[in-house]
Simulated scan of single mutants.
Amino acid sequence: MKELKKLIQKYKEEMIDFRRDLHQHPELQFEEFRTTEKVAETLDKIGIPYRKTEPTGIIAELVGGQPGKTVALRADMDALPVQELNDGISYKSLEEGKMHACGHDAHTAMLLTAAKALKEVQSEIKGTVRFIFQPSEENAQGAKAMVAQGAVEGVDDVFGIHIWSQMLSGTVSCVVGSSFASADIFSIDFKGRGGHGAMPDACVDAAMIASSFVMNVQSVVSRETNPLDPVVVTVGKMDVGTRFNVIAENARLEGTVRCFSIETRDRVEKALKRYAAQTAAMYGGTASVEYNYGTVPVINDEEDALFAQKIIKENFGEAALIQEPPTTGGEDFSYFTENTPGCFALVGCGNPEKDTQWAHHHGRFNVDEDAMEIGAELYAQYAFEYLNK
Rank of each mutant, 00 (worst) to 15 (best):
E3P: 01
E3K: 14
L7C: 05
E13G: 00
D17S: 13
D21H: 13
H25S: 02
E31I: 04
T35G: 09
T36P: 00
E41K: 12
I58H: 06
P67R: 12
M77F: 10
N86R: 15
G88A: 13
K92C: 04
S93T: 00
L94N: 10
E96Q: 13
G97Q: 05
H100T: 04
T108Y: 12
L112N: 11
A115G: 10
L118V: 02
G127A: 02
S136A: 15
Q141S: 11
D156R: 03
W164T: 02
M167N: 06
G170S: 08
C174Y: 14
V175P: 00
S178P: 13
S182Q: 07
F186W: 08
K191V: 13
A198E: 07
M199I: 11
P200M: 12
M208V: 14
L228W: 09
T234S: 14
M238A: 11
E249P: 12
R252S: 11
E254C: 07
T256A: 13
V257K: 10
R258S: 10
V268G: 12
R274P: 00
Y275T: 08
Q278F: 10
L306T: 02
I312R: 11
E318A: 14
A319E: 15
T327K: 15
T328N: 12
E338A: 11
N339T: 10
G348T: 01
C349D: 01
G350A: 12
Q357K: 11
W358P: 00
N366Q: 10
D370W: 07
A371Q: 03
Y382W: 09
K389L: 03
